[in-house]
Amino acid sequence: MKVLIADDHGIIRLGVSQIIKEIDPGSTIHEAEDFDETIRLLNAHIIDLLILDINIPGGNNFQMISTVKSKQPDIKVLVFSAFSEELYATRYFKAGADGYLQKDTSPVEVKSAVNTILSGKHYMSQNIREYFLQGMIRKEVNMNNPLAELSDRETEVARMLVMGISQTAIAEKLNLHTSTVGTHKYRIFEKLAVSNIAELIEKYRIYDYS
Rank of each mutant, 00 (worst) to 15 (best):
I51K: 00
I51V: 01
I51A: 01
L52E: 05
L52H: 03
L52F: 06
L52N: 00
D53E: 01
I54P: 07
I54Q: 05
N55C: 05
I56C: 03
I56S: 02
I56V: 03
I56K: 02
P57A: 05
G58N: 03
G58T: 03
G59N: 02
G59I: 00
N60K: 04
N61G: 08
N61C: 12
N61R: 08
Q63L: 14
M64I: 06
S66D: 14
T67H: 09
T67M: 12
V68P: 13
V68F: 15
V68G: 12
V68N: 11
K69M: 12
S70K: 15
S70D: 14
S70A: 15
K71V: 15
Q72S: 15
Q72H: 15
Q72Y: 14
P73S: 15
P73L: 13
D74E: 14
D74I: 13
D74L: 14
D74Y: 13
I75N: 11
K76F: 08
K76C: 09
K76R: 13
L78G: 06
V79I: 11
V79M: 11
F80Q: 03
F80K: 03
F80Y: 11
F80R: 04
S81R: 08
S81D: 12
A82D: 05
F83P: 00
F83V: 02
E86N: 13
R91M: 10
